[in-house]
């Protein structure tokens, strides 16, 4: 469905709606993670090629977001949080979204290969395919483990950034992948605890909907442990300096504290869910600061 004129002729979508399809807010963290992976790589990259690689990561993420919204328009219409997106709001027809997403995906991968190398382009293509086919199409509507496995899609950017600069993949980008992969479940489950009704109404089998709040809280606590281990690992392994180590200890300590509050809590109906909202907000800041500390450590301590 699209916005109609008075004579029932569909109106063309506005360019802002195409921009909204790319989920620009989500893209910020993706771009930052890609940039961090590129900046901590041992080989410097030409600024123009580096800029192009980051642009391709952003476009690839945008393409994945557009294809996700194309496939999930029916779900988005049932959730308050997503009902105003261009497709469920009827401001764009589905075919335009599909063409835009596919076109952008091909464009980002081809440009990445032309500007940098086959490894970066290959991982970028893999991340788009993983997000669209594994997460969106296969897992999201079928299992409460959707964001656990699907989290891999969002964990690729530092690997792509590193690969764009070096042409290969080594231990540090794999650890960065692991950090984001293990960070995704507590991050999303904190969100799903306070938008549980939305997910339940849309029939999305998120963990709080399927297994209940208590299990979700336990899982948030449990996933925080391997996440913190992965985040601290680069320091003892000699891949970073003390600056990153100190920042990682402080940030993971804070994350663990907020996660423990959520994990050990019981709520009554009508609860404002403040600790859950605080954990969700801090989890975003956590990733920005952790990756930022990694880059600063690399620049300051070499």
């Amino acid at each position: 469905m699209t916005t109609m004129t008075t004579s029932s002729v569909p109106l063309p979508a506005e360019w802002r709606d195409f921009l909204a399809l790319t989920k620009p807010k989500v893209m910020r963290l993706v771009v930052f993670a890609g940039l961090a992976g590129m900046l901590v790589a041992p080989e410097p990259i030409n600024p123009v090629l580096g800029f192009t690689a980051i642009l391709c990561i952003a476009l690839g993420a945008g393409a994945a977001g557009a294809l996700n919204q194309w496939y999930e328009a029916d779900l988005d219409a049932k959730m308050k949080r997503t009902a105003a997106r261009p497709l469920p709001a009827g401001r764009m027809d589905r075919q335009s979204a599909l063409h835009f997403g596919v076109g952008l995906a091909f464009f980002s991968v081809i440009l990445m290969e032309l500007a940098t190398n086959m490894v970066a382009a290959g991982v970028l293509a893999l991340s788009i395919l993983f997000y669209v086919f594994i997460y969106t199409v296969w897992l999201k509507r079928r299992t409460p483990q959707n964001i656990v496995i699907g989290g891999a899609a969002g964990a690729f950017p530092p690997v792509i950034g590193w690969a764009a600069a070096t042409g290969n993949i080594s231990l540090l980008p794999v650890l960065l992948f692991a950090i984001i992969f293990l960070w995704t479940p507590p991050h999303f489950w904190a969100l799903s605890l306070f938008v549980k009704t939305d997910y339940a109404n849309a029939g999305v089998p998120m963990l709080p909907v399927v297994a209940g709040e208590r299990v979700t809280r336990q899982q948030i606590g449990l996933y925080t442990l391997p996440m913190a281990a992965a985040a601290l690992a680069p320091w003892p392994l000699g891949l970073t300096g003390w600056l990153y180590g100190v920042a990682a200890i402080a940030l993971n300590g804070m994350f663990a504290l907020l996660a423990a509050r959520v994990a050990l809590r019981q709520t009554a109906p009508g609860d404002a869910m403040k600790p859950e909202k605080r954990l969700f907000a801090f989890s975003i800041l956590y990733l920005f600061l952790l990756l930022g500390a990694l880059v600063v450590d690399h620049w300051v301590l070499g």
Partner: peptide, 20 residues
């Protein structure tokens, strides 16, 4: 299509063409 709708269509087409 009435003139008002046609104006909106033209405006959107113009804006999209400019961005492109």
């Amino acid at each position: 299509m009435d003139p008002q709708d046609e104006k909106i269509v033209r405006e959107r087409q113009h804006a999209r063409a400019k961005v492109m």
